[in-house]
Each structure stands twice: as structure tokens, then as C-alpha cells.
Design a protein around this nucleic acid. Structure first.
Lengths: 204, 204
DNA sequence: GTCTATAGCTGGATAGAC
DNA sequence: GTCTATCCAGCTATAGAC
């Protein structure tokens, strides 16, 4: 445990780790205190007042940490296929670095969908999906890529990038993959998805 | 609330509904009792002894309910493409009927991955993924379909079927879809996925 | 700022009347 | 089988010494 960190930061890191793994309802203040290097439970309240407020702070941070990155790639210049490739690369590499974040965000938002709206209205960094939809449609009209309903295409891409990490425990069980196998598989994941999408979209 | 149901069944239905929505840690025995039509809390313990055992029963039931169906489609006769189509149809229609199940199962299994192993060893109904992998490889060698790493192909298919339902609150927020829009979109989902997969797999 | 001690509450579980 | 009343553990939160 890094001793050069302020107590507040140690608590935040610990809280993030525990909340992300166990969710709000499953997390315990005591466990967070221990994770923070044996800090006293009372200090969590000294710094953050309540479990609710600590969670809110963490969720906010996680959200602010991922959204701008995910958004940036949608604003790149280039062809639709280039954009999709960049999207896949960015998502896969981000999620590999923080594999528990998607399930955490999904689970907490499904408990309280309003949270998302609040976060988003407070913050203009919402991914600009509408623009991508437009560009996909234009590329289809120009016959650059095969025609699909853009929203479904978008869902397909997103799903292939995110889902394996969300469902990792199930997938590993069903397919009998060990952790080493899993990592090797994920090393190729971005390339595989891009190849798959290109194959589906190419006009003959 | 159906009065012709036994108390035990009312409790099971209520527990399923609450556990599936809130997860084990987020569920409250009191809430389950109310959901069961104002039944007394003590009765939950009379019938199921503890929250743990009630949950275990529910999880078991959910698991037994979905696994055989998901498994059956993998044992069908036919070409690989036919099998994939059947897989997509079966998954989409099942999940549309029980849209909260996947996130529930994923979330609880990520809290306790061993649970899956127990369920599976106790029950031979595990989806036979290995066989599908084999058939995919053979079809690729025969040049019936384009070549991909079979496991990635499998993940792609599974992801496209399941993920939209898991991430529904986020997707609806990001894309500004209302519920009507969502339902219309999901009416076409199976067809869209099949078209997408066929396009990706077709050899020119 | 950090600790100990403890208050106060929530929620799972049980006893016992009916 | 079902209810009321109550217990008790575990958890959040606070008071107060240092």
C-alpha cells in the first residue's frame, strides 16, 4: 500500500475497488477501511460523511474517467470504417485495463437509471452517437459499406467489445478456459472484431 | 395477485422478482414479503429457513429454467449456419421474455463464480460448446464459411444476442430511445443479427 | 486528522400465541 | 400455516478523547 498517498486518496482508491467488485449494496464500510490499509472506519465518515456520498463520489469519478475517452474516438475525422476500427481499439484496450467497470456501471445504472441522466446533463461529454449514425447512413448510401439498420450495427459493435468482459466468469466456465487462455484470447480480440465487422460490411 | 396460488409459490415468485431486480445483497426479506401480496415476513423463514436458502432455491430454478433451452439448440441437427440461426432465434426470444435474467446471473456469478461450477457439475445440461466449435472448424475447412477463430465467432454471436438486454438502460440513455422505440428495435433484432453474421461469414 | 467507544438502526431470524 | 412480538447481529454513523 502506497504510504505517500493522502488518507483521502487511499480511501477513494479502496472504495473504488470494493464498490466496483461488490456493488453499492454488497460493499461494507469496514471492508473499504481495511482495503485502504487498515484505516479506521470512522475516517470514511470524517472525509465523506456517509456511504451514499462516498459512493456517489466514486461513481462520478469512474464516469468522468471513462466517458471523455469513449467520446473522443467518436469525434475523430476519417471514414466510417476507420472510425469503427478506432472505436473497437479504444474500447477493448480501455476495458482490458479496467475489466470490472462495465458490469459495475451497468449494474448500478439498472438499479437507478436516473443517475445516468443526472451525470449526463451535468456533463456535456456524452458520446455523440447520433453523428455516427448519420455517417453510417451516408456511407451506406454511397455504397461504401453494406446496408444495415445503423442502430443495430452500432449495438453489434458495442456488444462484441464489451460483453465478453462482462460475462467473463460464465464464458470461462462454459468454455473451460483458464486465465492464461483468456488473456491470450483477449490479445487478439480487437483484431478479430475488426476483421469480423469488415467482412460483414464489405460490398462485393 | 393470484389468490389461487399456494403461499410457497407466491413467495417464490416474489423472491424471484426481487432477487432478479436487486441482486442478493440488494434484496430485502421485507420487500419480498410485500411483493408476495402482504404476506408476513416470518413465513419466508417458515418455508425457506433463511435468505441464503431462499436465494439458492431461486437461483437454482432460474438456472434450470434457462439451461436446457439454451442447450437444446446446440444439439440440433443441421448445417453450422442453420445452427447459428437457431441459436440466435432461441436466445433472443428467450431473453425478450425474461430480460432481467442475464444481468442477474452474470452479476451473481461474478460475486461467486464457484456457484456455476456447482450447478453445472450437479447437472449435465451444460451447453455443449465444444461440439459447436468443432463443427464451425469443419465448415471452415470445407470453405462453407469464412475463416475466423471459432471461439471469437462464438463470443461475437453470444454478445450480439445478450448484451443489448444487459446494457439496456445505458443504451437507451445514450441513444435517447424511449421504450416504444426499444421494443420496435428488438422486434427486428434476431433478423438483423442473422443477416450480419451471414454477411460476415459468406465466402465470395 | 486519527483513534476508541458506542449509539442507533436495519434487517435477518426466532419464539410463541392462535 | 399464519400472525405478532421480539431478539440479536451487523452495519452505518456519531461523540469525544487524543
Amino acid at each position: 500500500m502506497p504510504k505517500d498517498q493522502s488518507t483521502e486518496d487511499r480511501i477513494k482508491d479502496a472504495a473504488k475497488s470494493i464498490f466496483v467488485q461488490k456493488g453499492y449494496a454488497g460493499a461494507r464500510m469496514q471492508e473499504i477501511a481495511e482495503e485502504a490499509g487498515g484505516i479506521n472506519k470512522a475516517l470514511l465518515h470524517y472525509y465523506f460523511r456517509s456511504k451514499d456520498q462516498l459512493f456517489e463520489k466514486i461513481f462520478e469519478e469512474v464516469f468522468q474517467e471513462i466517458m471523455p475517452k469513449l467520446n473522443a474516438v467518436l469525434n475523430l475525422e476519417g471514414s466510417v470504417l476507420e472510425k469503427i476500427d478506432a472505436f473497437v481499439d479504444e474500447y477493448i484496450s480501455n476495458i482490458r485495463r479496467h475489466p470490472h467497470i462495465p458490469l459495475f456501471v451497468i449494474h448500478e445504472l439498472s438499479q437507478n437509471p436516473d443517475r445516468f441522466v443526472q451525470k449526463v446533463t451535468a456533463n456535456p461529454g456524452l458520446p455523440n452517437v447520433a453523428r455516427l449514425m448519420m455517417e453510417i447512413m451516408e456511407a451506406m448510401e454511397r455504397k461504401e459499406i453494406r446496408t444495415f439498420v445503423p442502430m443495430h450495427l452500432f449495438m453489434n459493435i458495442l456488444s462484441m467489445c464489451v460483453f465478453p468482459f462482462v460475462a467473463r466468469p460464465i464464458i470461462q466456465s462454459v468454455t473451460q478456459m483458464d486465465d492464461l487462455n483468456w488473456d491470450q484470447m483477449m490479445d487478439d480480440r480487437a483484431e478479430m472484431i475488426k476483421r469480423f465487422i469488415h467482412a460483414a460490411l464489405e460490398v462485393e
